[in-house]
Write a protein that binds this DNA or RNA. Structure first.
Lengths: 335, 335
DNA sequence: TACAGTTTTGGAAGCGCTTCCAATTTTGGC
DNA sequence: GCCAAAATTGGAAGCGCTTCCAAAACTGTA
C-alpha cells in the first residue's frame, strides 16, 4: 500500500496492464476508442497499484488549470460580511464539488491578495474566477476582462454592468417590503438608505421609491446613511425630527434597522404599532432585536451556487445570461 | 500588452535577454550564481514581455505542489460554525498570503468532500493540509498520517491526540470562568456541559470541576447537554429542579447559555442577582442576549494563523510543537 | 603569463501527463 | 475468405519549468 517512495505513474500502470501510456490516459479520462479488454486491464492495474493521477501533470499536459478561484474583496470585517462569506463559500463549494475542479480562495481585500489575483489573471492561472464584492471601479475588473479568463461577478457595480453576474433582486426586494407596509395600512413611509455610491444602496432606494410612487404616496421621507448601525440611528433621528408623523420606515440593512430601533425605543415610539420597521439582509441578530425584525432575505447560498454554475458554463464555452435572484420577505414582529 | 495568444515562456525571456533558460530560472527563483549583468538583462526582459511564470509547470518540475489545503469537516450549519469558519479562514489566509502558496478549500462534511481529501492525501496533491473539526475517530486522520503529507489539526479529538495540533485552552478557559464566579462570591455553582463525546465538551467540564474542587465547593450540580440552545434550556430546567439553591451556572457554550437564560427568565429568576451565568465562545449574539452574556472568548483567527505557521514549519522540515491558545473572559452583564 | 580555484553559464534531461499520428487490429459486407 | 473502412493501439512529441552537469569565463596568485 503506497509504501514505496516513488509514486505510481501512468508508466507503471501501463507496464502492469500490458498496454501503452496512451491507453492508460484514455481510460483515466474515459475517452472513447478503448476496448473493453484494455479498459478492464487498466482498471485492474490502477486498483492493484493504488494509482492516483498527478493533477499537476494533467494540468500541464492538458492545457487546463484544474481550478477555479473564489475571490472576495470585501474588507468589511463585520458580522454580515462573515456570514455572507461563509454562506457563499458553502454554495460555491456545493457546485464545485460535483466537478473535479479545485476551489482556490483568494481574499482580495489586502494588497497582497489583490496582487495574487492580478497574477492569476495575467498568468491565466485558473480556469475561471468568481469575483465577489469588488469595489466600484476596481482596476481588477478591467484586468479580469482583458485577461481572457472567464469571470463571473457576484453583485453589480454602479459604474458598469459586468458581462456576467449574479445578483440578488435588491430593488424587487425593497419594493416588496414597502408594498407589504402599504398593504398593512401604512401611508407615511420613510426610508433609510445605504451608501448611494454602491449599487445595492441605490437599488434598494429605487425599490422603495417605485412602490411608494406607484401607490401615490409621498416619497420625500428619505435619510441617507451608510449601512452601519450608527448611521441608521442617526438617520432615524433625523427622519423623526423632519417627519414626526411617519408611520413606517423601510431600512436598507438590518444593521441600520437595529440602530433605528434603538432610537425609536429611546423616544418611546412603539414598534410596530406606532411605526413599522422593515430591514434588509436577514442577518442572525434580526431575530434577536426587540421586537424581532421583519426583513428581506437574500438567497446567499444560491448566489454562490449560481455563480459557480454560470462560471462552469462559461468555461465550457457557453454564453450564459446574468441572473437576478429573488429575495423573500421574512415577516416577524416589527412590521 | 499580452495581446499575443501564446503566453510568454521562459524560452521567450531567455531569447530576449540573450541568456539560457537555466539562467532565467535562477533569476526567477533568485537562486545564487547569477551575475548582476545577467540578472538585470533577465529582469528587463521579464518586464518588457510581461512574463509571469506558469505555476503548474513550476510545480511539476520542482516536485512541489505549491498549495496547502484547509479542510473543514464540520457539518454543523449553525451560526457558530459559520462564523468560526470565516474567522479561521481569515487567519489562515493572512499567513498563507505571505508565502507564494495557494490556498485550497475543501469542505469535507460531504462524502464528495471527503473523497476529495482522500485523493489529495493519496496523490500527495498538496504540500500540506490543515484539518479542522474532524469527527472523533475519523478514518481520514489515519489516511492523513500514512500519506506522509504534513498535517496540522485544529482542535483535538478524544480518542487520540494528533501529532501536530493547535487548540484553544478549553479547560483553562472554563476554569477561569468558574474562578471568576467564585471570586465574585458564588458558592453553589452548577454547569451545563456540551457533548461528552467530544474533546471540547470534556475539557470544559474538566475545567469546571478543577476550579470548583480546588475551591472546596460542591461539584455535583451537573447537567449534560449537547451544545444546542434547546439542550441548554432542558439542562437548565433539570438543574433548577434538582438544585433550586444554585447561585451560578457555567454553560459550555453560548447557544446553550441562551437557552438557559430563557428558562431563567421564564421562572422569574434574576440574572445575575439570583443566578450568574457564564457562557463559552463569545458568539455575536452573546452581546444581544438579555442580559448580555459574560463568556469565554476563543482566539479563532489566531487559531487559523498558528495552524498555518505550524504547517509551514512542517513543510520546511522543522518539528514544531503543538500549541494551546489562551482564551479570555469577556465580562458583560450576566455574571 | 600561466594555472588552479571559483563563479557563472548553457543546455539537456527530466517532472507525469495528454494528444497526435501512424501503425495495427478488428469489423462487416460480399 | 478478401478488402476497405472503422476502431483500437503504441509511441513519441510536447506542456513550461527546474536542475544537474559539464563547459566557459572569470579570479587571484605565483
Amino acid at each position: 500500500m503506497g509504501m514505496s517512495n516513488r509514486p505510481v505513474t501512468v508508466d507503471d500502470v501501463a507496464k502492469h496492464a500490458g498496454v501503452s501510456t496512451g491507453t492508460v490516459s484514455r481510460v483515466i479520462n474515459n475517452a472513447p476508442h478503448v476496448s473493453g479488454k484494455a479498459r478492464a486491464a487498466v482498471e485492474r492495474a490502477i486498483d492493484q497499484l493504488g494509482y492516483v493521477p498527478n493533477k499537476t501533470a494533467q494540468s500541464l499536459a492538458g492545457q487546463r488549470r484544474g481550478s477555479v478561484v473564489l475571490a472576495i474583496s470585501s474588507d468589511d470585517p463585520g458580522l454580515f460580511a462573515n456570514l455572507f462569506f461563509a454562506q457563499v463559500v458553502t454554495g460555491v463549494n456545493a457546485v464545485v464539488e460535483e466537478t473535479d475542479l479545485e476551489l482556490q480562495l483568494v481574499l482580495a481585500a489586502s494588497d497582497r491578495g489583490r496582487a495574487r489575483l492580478s497574477r492569476i489573471f495575467r498568468a491565466r492561472a485558473a480556469d475561471g474566477v468568481m469575483l465577489l464584492a469588488l469595489k466600484e471601479n476596481d482596476p481588477l475588473s478591467a484586468l479580469a476582462e482583458s485577461s481572457g479568463v472567464p469571470v463571473v461577478h457576484g453583485g453589480r457595480s454602479l459604474d458598469s454592468e459586468p458581462r456576467y453576474y449574479v445578483d440578488a433582486d435588491n430593488r424587487g426586494g425593497a419594493r416588496e417590503a414597502v408594498e407589504y407596509l402599504i398593504s398593512s395600512g401604512r401611508r407615511r413611509i420613510a426610508t433609510i438608505t445605504g451608501g448611494q455610491d454602491q449599487h445595492v444602496g441605490v437599488a434598494r432606494y429605487l425599490g422603495y421609491r417605485e412602490a411608494v410612487v406607484l401607490a401615490g404616496l409621498d416619497d420625500s421621507r428619505v435619510a441617507h446613511a451608510d449601512f452601519s448601525e450608527a448611521g441608521g440611528a442617526a438617520a432615524m433621528t433625523s427622519l423623526l425630527d423632519r417627519s414626526p408623523d411617519l408611520d413606517a420606515v423601510f431600512v436598507a440593512s438590518d444593521a441600520m434597522a437595529a440602530g433605528a430601533l434603538s432610537v425609536l425605543a429611546a423616544r418611546g415610539i412603539a414598534v410596530p404599532s406606532d411605526v413599522a420597521v422593515v430591514g434588509f439582509n436577514d442577518i442572525v441578530t434580526a431575530q434577536h432585536t426587540t421586537p424581532a425584525l421583519t426583513t428581506v432575505r437574500q438567497p446567499i447560498d444560491a448566489l454562490g451556487r449560481e455563480m459557480t454554475r454560470m462560471l462552469l458554463r462559461l468555461i465550457d464555452g457557453d454564453t450564459p445570461t446574468s441572473l437576478i435572484l429573488p429575495t423573500s420577505l421574512v415577516v416577524r414582529e416589527s412590521a
